[in-house]
Each structure stands twice: as structure tokens, then as C-alpha cells.
Design a protein around this nucleic acid. Sequence first.
DNA 1: ACCTGAACACCGTTCAAGT
DNA 2: ACCTGAACACCGTTCAAGT
Lengths: 245, 245
Amino acid sequence: MVMTTPRVRLNRDRVLQAAVGVADQIGIDALSMRRLAEELGVVPMALYKHVANKEQLLDGMVEVIVAEIDPPAQHGDWKSTVRQRVLSARRVLLRHPWARQVLESRTDHTPTVLAYLESTIGMFLAGGFSVDLTHHVMHALGSRMWGFTQELFDQPAGPGGAAPAEVPPETIAAQGRLLAERYPNIGQISAAAAHDDTAVARGCDDRFEFEFALDLLLDGFERLHQSGWSSAPGSEHPHAELLAP
Amino acid sequence: MVMTTPRVRLNRDRVLQAAVGVADQIGIDALSMRRLAEELGVVPMALYKHVANKEQLLDGMVEVIVAEIDPPAQHGDWKSTVRQRVLSARRVLLRHPWARQVLESRTDHTPTVLAYLESTIGMFLAGGFSVDLTHHVMHALGSRMWGFTQELFDQPAGPGGAAPAEVPPETIAAQGRLLAERYPNIGQISAAAAHDDTAVARGCDDRFEFEFALDLLLDGFERLHQSGWSSAPGSEHPHAELLAP
DNA sequence: ACCTGAACACCGTTCAAGT
DNA sequence: ACCTGAACACCGTTCAAGT
């Protein structure tokens, strides 16, 4: 009688790594406990010895990708340290297109995520920011801290961040012309974004767009910091000094 | 023989309105075609005469809530017009907690959504912004245009934006103390956010936080506009003039 | 200690049929 | 033209059982 023992014993890390791999390949919507079990050559219920349920599987997948973000630079001012970290996070997110959606859906703050926040907050405090300003600045950064941003004009990605379907360029161009007819302002923006005629929907939310907004915020933070900003309770425009000439 | 004809004939709008109502009550994750059909006193398949599938149901629900956003103010400068619209969108989103997640998941640009973009772009153009600057400014606004933001420190909401579970305040305080021990920076931020001892996790991402970031961006846009900013191809820090003294 | 098999209560969606 | 019923191919998760 032949007993085929599993090649490698299952454990939490193998489950999480496999889940990340499957999500990278088929998208997060198609990732099910059953599909993942199949990938690991195991019956679905075997997974439940290593993750309590699907929610915790997703939490674990976030841990995996947060661990891929570069550790903070050891020298340099707060601005370049924050900037480098955010851009590193962005590179990770680009490798795992599903991660944006999962990060946003997480409600449990796992230790890995808290450690990331802790470290980012520390960058501002080390730069001399007040706790008050740091608090608001972290909120202003928001999801940009993870290196992503709502994409408005992009070509629709597949569901769950899967690879986008191939669309012939002349179809895109035709759609663009129709769009511009009905929505002239959008048309102008799209035209400005296009470097040549065919790539109407390209060139958006690339490095340039992301850094434009990131630097706008970082410069704003710097300005507030240098002006000794503090939150004034009851003030409706809390940084009215910015509006002064 | 008694024939109970349906009280009202089903139609697309009645389906969408009901879907919004159900999502408001039980959260988006619990909203299924079957559950919605039950709510309407109809068999699940009856819905498919009015929406092609669940994706289009969600698209339709977005249309419903976008229509709830106030029309743009007719007078006033670009800054207050944009500001008012974004804050109106925010009020709508607060009434429909599930809408954030659904808006972000949408990949189809429905006419209603395109019209909203079109109108927002028009505000900047009417304010004298170049097409170039308007393009990047729209990206920088990103999801904030819809009045939402990634919430980092908030109490976890229920899944799918359902009402958060009740947690006794002393439990929250105890969790806060534990957190502060392990993550001192986060602890400091939380303490700064708390107006009194018990509400450690409160007071975040409220109007103040949202407007802080919104105004920081709007002020940055204004500064770029006044300085005659334009995107310089190949420049790595596209608004380096902000860094100059 | 870890994995399995069968089962339960759900999904979205099809198809052919009713009125 | 609109609604129904039965069915299909999926889910996440339980429980009791195997080794």
C-alpha cells in the first residue's frame, strides 16, 4: 500500500505565501479557500488549522506584503525618509495589484500594520514635528502612506486587480473621441495626458501623478511645521495662516 | 381564486432604491440578489429583468447616491465651489457608509460618474486653471473628491460598512493603554486626538481631519496656479519652485 | 497534531416554462 | 412583457471522524 505523504508539511507561512501567489495570478476575487487548498494539494478544511477563517487569511496576506516594504533609511531628513518609504510601499503595491483593495478592506489592525504606522509616525516626530501636527499629517497622508491613490481615469483593471483585458488601441481611441464629445472637460484632460494620439488613457496615475500629490502634501506639511502650526480648537479654517499673503 | 398582483410594478428605479435602503440597513456584504428580492416580495430572478447582473446593480446604486450630491454653487470662486461640493459629497457618503467601498470597486465609468467628474473639472477650468494643472490637480484630489479618505485610527466599522458593534468605553480605554505600551508613537497620537480620557479612539477623521487635508491640497493648488505652474517633462520634482525660499 | 469527507446554509446566474 | 421554479456550479464553514 503506497502512502503519499505531502511533500512539505503545511504551515501558516506556506499558506500565506501561496495565497499571495494565487492572488497575484488570478486576482483577489477568484481567490477562495477551496481554490487555495487545491493549489496546495490539500482539502479545503486543512487550511483551517493554520488560519482561523478567510478574514484572517487576508490579514495574513497583508502582513506578507507589508514585510516587503523597505526598512526606513537610516540617515536623511524626515522628508526624504518619508518620501522613500512611501515610494517603496508603492513599488510593492504595484507588484501585488490586489493589495490595495485588501488593505482598504482591513479593519483589524494587525501588529505588522501597527508597526508600520508606528515607524512612520516616528519619522515626523524625529523631524521635530509636534504630536499635534503629526497626528493631522498622518490623516492627510491617509492611504497614500501605503503608496496608492484612487485611480480616476485609468483603464479598468480586471475584477479584483487581475490583469486588465487586452483592448485594441483603435477601440480606445474611438471610445476617447465619443467621451470627449459628451464630456468636453474630461476630453481636454485626457488629451493633455496623452503623449501621442493612441495612448488616450495612458500616462495617468504613473510615478508623476503620484509624486505630484505626495510632494504637494509633503511641502504643505513642511510649511505648517516651519510656521509653528498648531490646531486651534473651534477654528473653522485651522491653517488660515496659509491663506495670508 | 385569489390573484395577489404585486402592490407596485417592479422597475429599475424601485430596485435601485430598495438596494440602497437594504445596504444602509444591513451593510453591503449582506446585500445579495436573493436578499434584495425578498425585500421586494419577489423571486430572485425577477430582478434580472431590471438589472443585467449584480455588477450593474452596484453601478446603479452609485448613480443613486451621486445624484444626492448637491449641485454646484452658482456663484463664488473655484476654491469655495470645489470645497462646498466635496463637503456635500462627504455628507452623502456619511449617510451611506457602504458607498465608499462600492465607489472604489467600480471600474465602469457610468454616465452619472462621468458627469460628476466633468463638472468638477469645469470648476478648475472656470477658475482659470490650465488644462495641464487641472489634470494633475484632479489626480491629487483623488478619492477625496468623493468626500472620503482612508481611515487609519477609527474604530472598526462592521463588515461592509454596517453599523459598528457596541464596545464598552472601559474596554476601549484598556485596549488603548495596551496599544500605547507597545507602540508609543501611536499612543501619543491617540492621546492628542482624545479630548477626554475615555474617548481614545474618537475624534478622528471627523470634519476637522477631512478639512485639514482638503484645505492643505486646495491651498497647494492655489499656490501652483498663481505661480503659473506647468508640468516640465523630465523634471523629477515637478514643482521644485515650492521648495525655493 | 494534523488532515479528511460529508454536510449545511448560503451565493450569482442559466434555462425553460408560465401568465 | 414580466415573473416563476428548478437547477447548476460555486462559496465559507460546521462537525465528527480518521491517522
